[in-house]
């Protein structure tokens, strides 16, 4: 039905105002800050790419990885280490997080320790038969509630990287951090939850603490398990996923509430983004400063 002509101009005016008034903040318009962009005079670490195909924890898998070695690494004292799931997204110089550049900047400023970055893609089992499809192992590796991914890192990846690139990685669990997005986020938490003797620092972007493979039980477990020495930063968005596996915003709120209840050293940021790395990437430098704030040698904020 056409509106009466007398009110039409008012409607048109309202519509045009809505169209042209710039919003102070549109949803999910997070931008990278200076700490995520290359800065003049800051020494650049090197990034080396490789392929790992000898896992016993995940037999038959092949995966790309990247290792970041900061310029400040002296080859003598053991470096801190930080692992990222879905490594290609985190290591990319045009990606949501640009971790090598962030590390360059923060290490240069003394706001995080000299840290070796390990960026791992999920594994794929290539098919042996013509016309068959590869077995994509990402969900099995990241969403499963067990110590398998921790064992993969501790028994296979870290010794391999250390030897192959002749780098000394710290044994101090407070110097071992891990981060990821979505299923890679819950994976990071699972590694620390299963092996806090090895990893105690966790970053999660839009973490899948939902029922993909049972991960929705973590808030309940956290509340009824003796507190573990884990420091965790959770980033989540109001417009994140809602699907058969669960509601991502609700699941992350449950995680935050459980961590608070159980007295964890945690931080929870709820933005207005969706299921992507924009918000997480934009605040990654802050996450890292918070994560490493009291590590030996790091400048106090």
């Amino acid at each position: 039905m056409r509106p009466p002509s007398s009110i039409r101009p008012a409607v048109l005016l309202a519509a045009s105002v809505l169209m042209f008034v710039p919003f102070a903040h549109a949803a999910d318009d997070y931008k990278l800050g200076p700490d995520s962009l290359e800065q003049k005079g800051v020494p650049k670490g090197k990034v080396i790419q490789g392929k790992f195909d000898r896992s016993k924890v995940y037999p038959g898998t092949v995966r790309d990885y990247w290792v970041y070695i900061p310029k400040q690494y002296d080859g003598k004292s053991p470096a801190a280490v930080m692992v990222f799931q879905d490594g290609k997204w985190y290591v990319s110089p045009t990606g949501h997080s640009r971790v090598p550049t962030v590390f360059d900047n923060l290490i240069h400023k003394g706001e995080m320790p000299v840290t070796i970055g390990v960026f791992l893609n999920p594994g794929v089992v290539p098919p042996a038969r013509q016309g068959a499809k590869p077995r994509r192992n990402r969900s099995f590796e990241y969403d499963t509630l067990s110590d398998q991914y921790a064992r993969f890192l501790i028994d296979e990846i870290l010794p391999y990287i250390s030897k192959k690139y002749d780098v000394k990685l710290t044994d101090n669990p407070d110097g071992r951090a891990i981060g990821g997005i979505s299923s890679g986020g819950i994976c990071a938490w699972t590694v620390a939850w299963e092996r806090p003797d090895q990893f105690r620092k966790v970053i999660s972007y839009v973490g899948s603490f939902t029922n993909i493979r049972g991960g929705h039980v973590y808030p309940a477990l956290i509340r009824k398990t003796q507190r573990k020495p884990i420091r965790v930063f959770l980033q989540e968005g109001e417009n994140d996923l809602e699907n058969l596996h669960g509601s991502w915003p609700l699941a992350n709120r449950q995680m935050a509430a459980a961590l608070k209840f159980a007295g964890y050293d945690y931080k929870f940021v709820m933005g207005d983004g969706g299921h992507n790395g924009k918000h997480g990437g934009a605040i990654l430098p802050d996450m890292l400063r918070w994560l490493w704030r009291d590590y030996p040698g790091v400048k106090q904020p």
Binding site: H96, I181, S182, S183, S208, L241, N243, L244, N276, G277
Partner: peptide
């Protein structure tokens, strides 16, 4: 495009 496509491949009942 470096976004995560979890939902794109979901297969609900």
């Amino acid at each position: 495009l470096l976004t995560v496509s979890v939902s794109a491949q979901d297969m609900p009942l």
